[in-house]
């Protein structure tokens, strides 16, 4: 057996640092069959790390990828992966910081809606992988006495998420990912909010009007129906509580109902 003491030792810290820093030298002590340091061989690992993580990011954010184009996304993903490598081996949870990263990325300041498109795609993924649960049966609400109706609170369904944006986030996401053939003209001055649900296996995205968005947001956060309806009314004069509430229930936003006394 050879003695290991005369050979340079490579630990995980130096191996890992060199993986994420393409400027750094190949750690001494990693060799080819001739015993010589082998940068091209080490670069196989570097490449695997960056490419596989960039691909994982592209699978989570296909809409952002389409908006930016293959080459730009590749360069952007490399910057993101280097700055925010994953903290967990479960890559379906990789990319939580991507929306904020896009908002703060100086070269993309002319496209301020990108972050919200990423938020919508992230919420879609959370809904896809959320725990399965039966949505609340709307008939349950009919069993509540009219005097108590205002005190009703809802348990959010595990897959229910909302994204509110100053930008037409759904129109942009729809055109670049979900329904590219159906999409019409996009008015960049139109703020949009969406509710994302998965009552069974299909993820659904619903565009909400201002009053409906306020109501849904408050109800998902556990406010009473009376409080949520009051705020929605302030937000949107044409707001109809019965329409918005039945839309929410039909979408599968809630999994349970609570009566606070």
């Amino acid at each position: 057996m050879r003695s290991s003491l005369s050979h340079p030792q490579v630990d995980a810290a130096s191996f890992g640092r060199a993986l994420l820093d393409p400027q750094s030298a190949t750690p001494d002590g990693l060799t080819g069959p001739d015993g010589q340091t082998a940068p091209k061989r080490f670069n196989v690992y570097r490449n695997n790390v960056i490419v596989s993580l960039s691909e994982a990011l592209g699978e989570t954010f296909p809409g952002v990828k389409t908006l930016l184009g293959e080459d730009y996304f590749k360069a952007l993903a490399r910057a993101f992966v280097t700055a925010h490598p994953p903290l967990s081996p479960v890559l379906i949870w990789y990319g939580a910081e991507f929306a904020d990263f896009l908002d703060a990325f100086p070269p993309l300041q002319a496209y301020p809606y990108l972050g919200d498109v990423a938020r919508l795609e992230w919420a879609w993924l959370q809904a896809y992988h959320a725990a399965d649960a039966a949505p609340l049966d709307p008939a349950r609400l009919g069993e509540v006495s009219p005097q108590q109706l205002g005190d009703v609170c809802f348990t959010p369904h595990p897959a229910a998420h909302m994204v509110t944006s100053r930008w037409p986030v759904w129109a942009i996401a729809r055109a670049n990912r979900f329904e590219p053939d159906e999409a019409g003209a996009i008015d960049l001055a139109e703020p949009q909010s969406v509710l994302i649900t998965r009552p069974d296996m299909d993820v659904n995205v619903f565009l909400l009007r201002a009053g409906g968005a306020a109501l849904t947001m408050d109800l998902l956060q556990g406010q009473t129906l009376a409080d949520a309806a009051g705020r929605a009314q302030e937000e949107d004069g044409s707001f109809s509580l019965s329409d918005c509430l039945s839309d929410c229930l039909a979408a599968g936003a809630f999994s349970g109902l609570l009566l606070n006394d």
């Binding site: 290991s4 030792q9 490579v10 995980a12 810290a13 191996f15 890992g16 993986l19 994420l20 690992y45 695997n48 790390v49 596989s52 993580l53 994982a56 490598p85 994953p86 903290l87 967990s88 081996p89 890559l91």
Partner: peptide
């Protein structure tokens, strides 16, 4: 193989020294 060190997951099957 190893794939995590410190707080980072590298998503590759990295080699170990045989010692």
């Amino acid at each position: 193989a190893w794939s995590s060190h410190d707080t980072t997951y590298f998503n590759d099957l990295l080699p170990v020294p045989y010692d």
